[in-house]
Design a protein around this nucleic acid. Structure first.
Lengths: 255, 255
DNA sequence: CCGTCGGCTTAACACAGGTAAATGCACAGC
DNA sequence: GCTGTGCATTTACCTGTGTTAAGCCGACGG
């Protein structure tokens, strides 16, 4: 009922029209709440998972470790994101999900998902959309790691975070909270800590960004400049617009 | 009816038990056939897509281009793989799919998917499994690009291809056809052509692999050695084993 | 039969980014 | 106030990988 409960409706609402009925149904869907402290794990490698999580508040990462301790962050999970998906259908999740800040999630047993979507095509649509989005973001991450320079990688990631946070009203036109250490950025971007530091210094010197002294806010000083620096193509996130009537019919089960 | 039609049944069969009824239904599902020549595109960036493809024969890549021409291969599509998935539900696919060899696919209109899965829980399971697998592979690709050295990257990819091809009986215990140029490997692994060449030379010198003179076959000379070199953890592909009864129920729509 | 072209290979050199180590600061615990 | 811990920062140095360029080979077309 409170604005608190509506993060993923905010996100979804920017993508499809939701009736008041839809909203009521979806609020029920996320009636469970779970608070998880900073640093805690929501999913661990090799652990069986039968739950889908709606991230209501806070930041988390999905990551994998190599046997020698190297860490790679697979993706950032931001408020409004849904995760635990793929793993919910099969035994092993081979990566781990850890809260970067204090976090609130809505857990939904995987076994209930199908039943819930049956009566609510828009919910099915929402889940399909979330998956597609996650796939797009992961794809861009691959390109970032494989074919961009350090400078481009940082710029690109900062733009992506800006847009993803704007979608859930957690970023202003050019600023947002960034609860990440440089080590985390390094493990995300495939760089060393030192080089992340060098690169961000250069981004600051070039007048593209500034970091608030209290360290948990970033401000994009030159939006176009940062986007250009990262060869950032925002369309990969913009999968909005109504899906075709055909697709809606297909999802609602009328074949 | 010919063995020809059963590639994805071969793959699926190694994961779940299929009744003869299941097999018949699924053969109908892929009754359409489409031949695509080497180098042709199956999907292009920005193109609307309403089709899911079952890759029956041949290799393809999914890739993205940067504005300045750099290319990143997102994933390899091998016989038995399903693609066009995510895009089928929403407007834009922002990457392209190109045939590396002559290819045969079974196209299925996205709008028919839901109807077809309704009556066939095992098909729904197959699709969910394919997605989960694709996600796992993409995740490993991210780790490979972000946190492995060139030598490790090549070793790891070669092991992954071995195991994926074995699943569809296209690889022997230690050898398989490799229709890839070094340029393609470079664009997959985030390396330069020259360095791919150096690295493969070293893998050969180290006695881990050998390339058949006619160049389209690779042979793993030291399976354990190559796996170790790439810190290869094969479990990321082994999502087999029956899903829980709960999950089957959920998929079949009984909630 | 020759020329061209794509792909592999090698060598020489350059540089982006990694590694190691030290400093400083903010903050928590005592 | 003292000490320890975590994180950002910087300097110095090193190396893995990129770049450029050239040679080689086999396939193919005229």
């Amino acid at each position: 009922m409170s604005a608190y409960e509506e993060i993923f409706l905010t996100k979804l609402g920017s993508f499809i029209d939701l009736s008041e009925d839809d909203r009521v149904l979806m609020r029920e869907f996320v009636s469970q709440k779970l608070a998880v402290g900073e640093g805690q794990h929501l999913l661990s490698e090799g652990e069986e998972n039968q739950t889908v999580f709606f991230l209501q508040d806070g930041w988390a990462i999905r990551y994998k470790l190599l046997p020698d301790g190297r860490r790679q962050v697979i993706s950032f999970l931001l408020p409004g994101d849904i995760f635990g998906f793929k793993e919910s259908l099969f035994d092993l999740s081979n990566d781990s999900v850890q809260a970067l800040t204090d976090v609130v999630v809505h857990p939904v047993p995987a076994t209930q998902i199908a039943g819930l979507t049956d009566g609510n095509p828009n919910l099915a649509l929402a889940l399909a959309w979330a998956r597609g989005r996650e796939h797009s973001i992961l794809t861009e991450h691959v390109v970032r790691l494989g074919r961009r320079t350090a400078y481009e990688r940082v710029a690109h990631l900062l733009m992506e975070l800006l847009h993803r946070l704007q979608l859930v009203d957690l970023a202003s036109a050019r600023a947002y909270p960034l609860p990440l250490t440089q080590e985390l950025l390094a493990d995300t971007l495939g760089l060393s800590i030192v080089h992340v530091n060098r690169t961000m210094r250069k981004l600051r010197k070039d007048g593209l960004i500034s970091i608030d002294t209290d360290k948990r806010m970033i401000r994009i000083e030159d939006l176009q400049g940062l986007a250009d620096a990262g060869h950032y193509d925002e369309t990969f996130l913009d999968q909005d617009g109504e899906p075709s009537a055909d697709v809606r019919d297909a999802l609602s089960g009328d074949s």
